[in-house]
């Protein structure tokens, strides 16, 4: 892992040897990452998208929810509306900027919640093994019997629209896969010598889980979670497209696409814009998570 080349036999602390470079894990990860220009570019793009959503009130030229009947469905490049206006005369650019708030939150929050809940279940299942493992993992298996889109639509569909329901259904979708990754990693650590040693030295189960198991499990789980952000953005915008997300007039990329769809015969280009925002964000997250996986050298 390190580039240290000092020879232990002739090692002499007083000798004026060139300092061997000993890099930590994260330093070597960064060293690999810094030459991966595509990943870095996409990382910068994500930061830009996040910042523009956060600072939407300052960046947006108009109120995203204010409609004006006189300026309905204006084309891209219109004097007042750079990216055109929608079927209620609302500025597309402003709605895209504000809409990023919901869409990005729905990409990250469900995965974060799923990581915490799935991770805890996975660690418990992996560490304890036996009956506990069987109960937890067989329950998860049942959820794997649903394709992810179907599970999300099923839960959201019966709970009804609304942002909390969307968050709940997406979190449930992501718990089982993250639980499985955590379980695999935790069950490998369980029988390792250093865990046995910790147990023999009288460490409590909680401190073993916290100090040894969690540390080992966290890196594969986080890398895997990063691959799910893009999927979560796609699923969330899909649910909003079906009307199972934020309630209008709150802007959201999926919902925008859904309402603009009625106008494709009038302003085709304008109608495609919200989807482009989803596409770019989703590509950027996919490429960054791929780059991270390579840089962190985690086997998928």
């Amino acid at each position: 892992m390190t580039d240290a080349t000092s020879d232990p036999i002739s090692f002499d602390q007083d000798a004026d040897l060139p300092q061997a470079v000993v890099r930590g894990y994260w330093a070597s990860v960064w060293n690999r990452l810094k030459y991966d220009y595509v990943t870095l570019f996409c990382l910068a793009l994500i930061i830009l998208i996040v910042l523009s959503a956060v600072f939407a009130p300052w960046l947006a030229p108009y109120d995203p929810e204010k409609s004006s009947m006189a300026y309905r469905l204006k084309p891209v490049g219109h004097d007042k509306y750079i990216l055109g206006s929608d079927e209620q005369g609302r500025d597309i650019l402003s709605r895209i900027l504000y809409g990023g708030r919901v869409s990005l939150a729905m990409g990250i929050l469900p995965v974060a919640l799923g990581t915490i809940i799935g991770g805890i279940f996975g660690i418990i299942a992996g560490y304890y093994g036996g009956k506990v493992n069987m109960i937890i993992m067989r329950t998860m298996d049942v959820f794997f019997a649903f394709p992810s889109v179907l599970l999300a639509v099923a839960i959201s569909g019966s709970l009804g629209g609304g942002i909390q329901n969307q968050l709940a259904s997406l979190t449930i979708v992501f718990i089982p896969p993250l639980c499985r990754v955590a379980e695999t990693a935790a069950s490998q650590v369980r029988n390792m010598d250093f865990v046995d040693a910790a147990r023999a030295s009288g460490a409590s189960t909680f401190s073993i889980l916290k100090d040894h198991v969690l540390i080992t499990v966290i890196s594969p789980v986080l890398v895997y979670a990063s691959t799910l952000v893009s999927a979560s953005i796609l699923l969330a915008s899909g649910l909003s497209f079906l009307g199972l997300g934020v309630s209008p007039p709150t802007p959201d990329w999926g919902l925008m696409l859904s309402t603009l769809r009625q106008s494709i015969w009038v302003q085709p280009l304008v109608c495609a814009i919200p989807g482009i925002a989803i596409l770019i964000t989703s590509i950027a997250f996919n490429i960054v998570s791929d780059g991270l996986r390579v840089a962190m050298d985690v086997k998928s």
Binding site: S230, L234, S237, G238, F241, G254, L257, R261, I264, W265, P268, L269, C271, A272, P274, G275, I276, I278, L279, S282, I283, N286, I287, D290
Partner: peptide, 22 residues
């Protein structure tokens, strides 16, 4: 990567715009 990242419902709308509308 494009295939994995593309929202299918948007792609559908774009296809309609190109091959049906235009």
């Amino acid at each position: 990567v494009f295939g994995i990242s593309v929202p299918t419902f948007w792609l559908g709308v774009v296809l309609v715009i190109i091959f049906a509308v235009e």
